[in-house]
Amino acid sequence: MLKGFRDFILRGNVVDLAVGIVIGAAFSTLVNSFTTSFLKPVIKLVDSSGGVNAGGWEISKDNFIDWAGFVNAVITFLLTAAVLYFLVVFPMNKLAERRRRGESPPPSAPSEEIRLLTEIRDALAGGARVPAQSGGPADRPGPDHPPAEHRP
């Protein structure tokens, strides 16, 4: 199940789609900020009879250009794009390049439990008896295991 999920995620189309959605949302915020910061004040200026105050950025008392809000949106967009590139796109491109060359990342070593279970499976498949540890089920009397003094 995890291998199928990994194959799904590593497909280029899925990663491209996810990056496109995130960049699209960030760009939408940038466009909204531009509209709010610059276009709305200009439209209000044309629509109303307010005059331009040459002494500052203020177009009228209630109508001003919000430079800081737009610059903040630009910085946020650039940071979002940089994080996506360096944490998602760049590593995925390197992995895809290695796969094209036939190199795959080395598999991780199996855990101690997996190794022991593999040894037990191989020993049972080969017909060998796995010695019981003291205190295990083979040392306890029961219907399948007579007491130790009655064993041959």
Rank of each mutant, 00 (worst) to 15 (best):
M1H: 07
M1I: 07
L10I: 13
G12W: 12
D16P: 00
L17I: 08
I21K: 05
V22R: 03
I23L: 08
G24A: 09
A25Y: 07
A25K: 08
T29R: 08
N32W: 11
S33A: 15
F34W: 09
F38P: 10
K40G: 00
P41I: 03
V42P: 04
L45Q: 06
V46T: 10
G50C: 06
G51R: 15
V52D: 05
N53K: 13
N53Y: 05
G56K: 09
I59Q: 05
S60R: 05
S60I: 03
K61F: 00
N63S: 06
F64N: 10
F64I: 13
I65S: 01
I65T: 03
W67R: 06
V71W: 10
T76C: 02
A81M: 09
V83K: 03
L84N: 02
Y85C: 00
L87N: 03
K94I: 15
L95T: 11
L95G: 00
R100K: 15
G102C: 04
P107D: 07
P110K: 12
P110W: 04
E113A: 15
E113H: 13
I114G: 07
R115A: 10
L117K: 12
D122H: 09
L124I: 09
A125C: 04
A125Q: 13
G127P: 00
R129E: 07
V130E: 00
P131C: 01
A132G: 12
Q133I: 12
A138C: 06
R140Y: 01
P141W: 06
G142V: 10
H145F: 08
P146F: 03
A148F: 02
